[in-house]
């Protein structure tokens, strides 16, 4: 039997100019790593075609132990209170090889 361990997956969709801030949040709140994808779509900020610097989006994934989730969400709420347009959702995931998610990034 594989040993699957429950963790939290935080997914953020936002403009790519926020990438550095999101990375800083993940790092400061003890995430073990993160993954960024280019994204495009449309929403409250109009169409994001991903063709220009001006309208490129990213999808930011970070997997965390449950006890580190609240800090990340606090920081994201602070960004949202400054009216940065973020889409944030949290999912329950089960990970294989859970050790690596416990070690914060250097």
């Amino acid at each position: 039997m594989h040993r699957l361990v429950p963790e939290k997956l935080v997914t953020i969709i936002s403009t790519d100019v926020l990438e550095e801030r999101l990375v800083a949040i993940a790092r400061n709140r003890g995430a073990s790593g993160y993954t960024i994808l280019r994204a495009r779509g449309a929403g409250s900020s109009g169409e994001q075609s991903g063709m220009l610097d001006a309208d490129a989006n990213i999808k930011f994934h970070v997997i965390l132990p449950t006890d580190r989730l609240a800090g990340v969400l606090d920081d994201l709420e602070r960004l949202m209170s400054k009216r940065y347009p973020l889409t944030v959702f949290v999912s329950d995931v089960a990970v294989l090889g859970s050790d690596k998610f416990d070690k914060p990034m250097g």
Binding site: T15, V17, S45, G46, L52, D53, A54, D55, Y84
Partner: peptide
């Protein structure tokens, strides 16, 4: 090209569209 990303970062209250 240059200004929209700067405004996105610095003036999030404004709507990019």
């Amino acid at each position: 090209i240059a200004v929209p990303p700067a405004m996105r970062l610095a003036v999030p209250e404004a709507n990019p569209s």
